[in-house]
Nucleic acid binder design. Sequence first.
DNA 1: CGCAAACTGTACAGTCCTTGCACAGTGTTT
DNA 2: AAACACTGTGCAAGGACTGTACAGTTTGCG
Lengths: 299, 299
Amino acid sequence: MREPEDRWRIKGFAALVGVQEETLRAWERRYCLLRPERSAGGYRLYSAADERRIRSMQAHMARGLAAAQAAALAVAESGRDVAAPADPAELLEALIAAAEAFDATRFDALLDAAFSPGSVAGIRDVVLPLLGEIGVRWERAELTVGHEHFASHLVERRLLGMAKGWEAGPGPLALLACAPGERHTLGLVCFGLVLSDRGWRIAYLGADTPVDQVADMSAALSPAAVVLCALDPERLTAAGPAIAELGLRHHTILAGSAANAELARQLGVHHAAGDPLSTAQALVADPPTKAASNQHDLT
Amino acid sequence: MREPEDRWRIKGFAALVGVQEETLRAWERRYCLLRPERSAGGYRLYSAADERRIRSMQAHMARGLAAAQAAALAVAESGRDVAAPADPAELLEALIAAAEAFDATRFDALLDAAFSPGSVAGIRDVVLPLLGEIGVRWERAELTVGHEHFASHLVERRLLGMAKGWEAGPGPLALLACAPGERHTLGLVCFGLVLSDRGWRIAYLGADTPVDQVADMSAALSPAAVVLCALDPERLTAAGPAIAELGLRHHTILAGSAANAELARQLGVHHAAGDPLSTAQALVADPPTKAASNQHDLT
DNA sequence: CGCAAACTGTACAGTCCTTGCACAGTGTTT
DNA sequence: AAACACTGTGCAAGGACTGTACAGTTTGCG
């Protein structure tokens, strides 16, 4: 930890930035603009980051923005450059630490860092490893269901934010759904995002979707591919006949860790090996053609 | 991915575009030229899109068009959401029609229109009625599970997009979770959004959360209120003892259609009557104090 | 033409919101 | 002990809201 050489108490800081002490406290209370550390006795200790936020706020106010709006911008701007490790492995550790502490603000800031190299890279290097790691630590009882829910929500929020507009791509249409009973959607959303990134159009039904509903929607939309995702093999075997039926009419792909080549062959549908990202990339590289959309045409 | 944008209050915006404040309000009222968001206190917050519309209108007026004509052109040019009815009831019908047709692009555009008067108004006038209506039509078998999934996903995506940053409000902290087994999160998210709009900080655990996990997180974060949501009464009675235990330590509120005053009294916790919006507003109007955080202190 | 109606920018009043600043009582630093 | 800082509460001035009204101009029409 740094010595308080570059830390100001409120009086000095007020003089430095030219804002009254009372106003500094008000801005902290009202807009969360400042987050000074505290001395042992409870005194505020302002840092250079606080100064930057003040300067940014002042600049925005000078442009004619109201205090509340200027503060919101200043906070948003500075929130981007929190201390986040650039190395994916460290980022992963930091994310898990933030989840353990239920620190949503930090978790979200770390996600910012994770996605700054690009959404596909963020999914590949951070999100998928994170989901895997949470699963592992949950099995080892190092993380609880609460931590898993906490992190999942924040990841889901981020992914769905990136999914905005994915229903309007220029390319072929993919229909995405989880198998009946399956409630883990994040992998499927990652898959959709990668497809969308490559121009595909996405129609998404989400968790726990009866296969006949997928069939209905497929009939309405004629997707180039239908993807059913499950992590628990039971989900797929239970819905086997309906899936086989679906496979007769559409290019149907089983995905998720429950999917395997043997089962897919039995049901007469396709099978996606590997993680969501490589699956999506394989699909993009070799898009199903209408003629060859499945091996079970009425020939 | 909505990044922080400039939001102007009327004075700054008037200076920016060179139009009197009164005139801005008149143009909004008469021609619907502007659709500023509103601050928590009801102030207009103009965006870059509003500026574009103003510039366009000014250009047309400079060419000699009357104000009404210029405004109509400006709206038509910039308004992508042309065919969206302004009346909430019609909007509701249009949304359901879009869901029936699996038309995600239109559904999303209609949601844009729903939220343009402000997020709380959108929740009150459109989202909550929509969820209710979908439930009704689903029971009457006019809509299928597929339609429900389709619409839910798009609504959820929109709501979570608005939830960005809700973990960082200046006010008291609320911890939100669905009861074990309960998987309907949208009402809970609406509730959180309204609280957030009023400055509360939100910690969110989402669907199907074991009550002991809620207790763990509560112990870590000391929220001013803990909200447990369920639509199915069975969820709450099954978790009864754990909820009572939680109620001893935190201001705990049962919400959702499964909650009732009788059950809450038995468990020694609070009860939220009514829809998510009125519940949230009641909580904001009468925030729990630490001293009175529950009726079962160790007295 | 002449008059009423509509359009359009502006104005005002009463109420509510925002924001910078202040004060009192208590605790911390030196 | 003196100077400094903290929290909580509160205020006053100005900003913004809504609703209504009012002139000056343009338009519609007998």
